[in-house]
Computed example of a mutant assay.
Amino acid sequence: MGGTEHLGVRREGATLVLTLDRPEAKNALSLPMLVGLYDGWTEADEDDSVRSIVLTGAGGSFCAGMDLKALAGKGMAGEQYRDRLTADPDLHWKAMLRHHRPRKPVIAAVEGYCVAGGTEILQGTDIRVAGQSATFGLFEVRRGLFPIGGSTVRLPRQIPRTHALEMLLTGRPYSAREAADIGLIGHVVPDGTALDTALEIAERINACGPLAVEAVKASVYATAEMTETEGLAAELERGWPIFDTDDAKEGARAFTEKRPPDFRRH
Rank of each mutant, 00 (worst) to 15 (best):
M1C: 04
G2N: 11
G3T: 03
T4W: 05
E5W: 02
E5Y: 09
E5R: 14
H6S: 02
H6D: 13
R10G: 02
A14W: 09
A14M: 14
T15L: 02
L16A: 09
L18V: 07
T19S: 14
L20W: 05
P23H: 05
E24H: 04
A28E: 07
S30Y: 07
M33K: 04
L34H: 08
D47V: 05
D48P: 08
S49M: 11
S49Y: 04
R51A: 08
I53R: 10
G57W: 05
G59F: 06
G59C: 08
G60R: 02
A64E: 13
M66G: 06
M66I: 12
M66Y: 09
A70Y: 15
G73Q: 11
A77C: 10
G78P: 04
E79H: 05
E79R: 05
Q80I: 06
R82T: 13
L85G: 09
L85S: 12
H92R: 12
H92S: 15
W93C: 15
H99V: 10
H100Q: 03
P105E: 04
P105I: 05
P105Y: 08
I107M: 07
I107W: 14
A108Y: 07
E111W: 03
G112R: 01
C114M: 05
A116Q: 06
G124H: 00
T125M: 09
I127M: 11
A130N: 01
S133I: 08
T135P: 08
F136N: 02
E140F: 14
R142W: 10
R143S: 14
I148C: 15
G149K: 09
G149Y: 09
S151A: 13
S151G: 01
V153M: 14
R161T: 09
E166K: 04
R177G: 13
E178R: 10
E178C: 01
A180E: 05
D181A: 11
V188R: 02
V188F: 00
V189S: 00
D191T: 05
G192P: 01
E200A: 15
E200I: 07
R204N: 09
N206F: 00
N206T: 07
A207C: 02
A212L: 12
A215G: 01
V216Y: 09
K217Y: 00
V220A: 11
V220C: 10
V220E: 09
Y221R: 11
A222H: 14
A222G: 07
T223C: 06
A224I: 07
M226A: 10
E228N: 12
E228M: 13
T229Y: 04
E235Q: 15
L236V: 13
L236P: 06
G239H: 03
G239C: 13
F243R: 14
T245K: 02
D246V: 15
A248I: 08
E250L: 03
E250D: 01
G251M: 00
A252G: 07
R253W: 13
R253S: 13
F255K: 12
E257T: 01
K258A: 15
P260L: 08
P261K: 00
R265C: 07
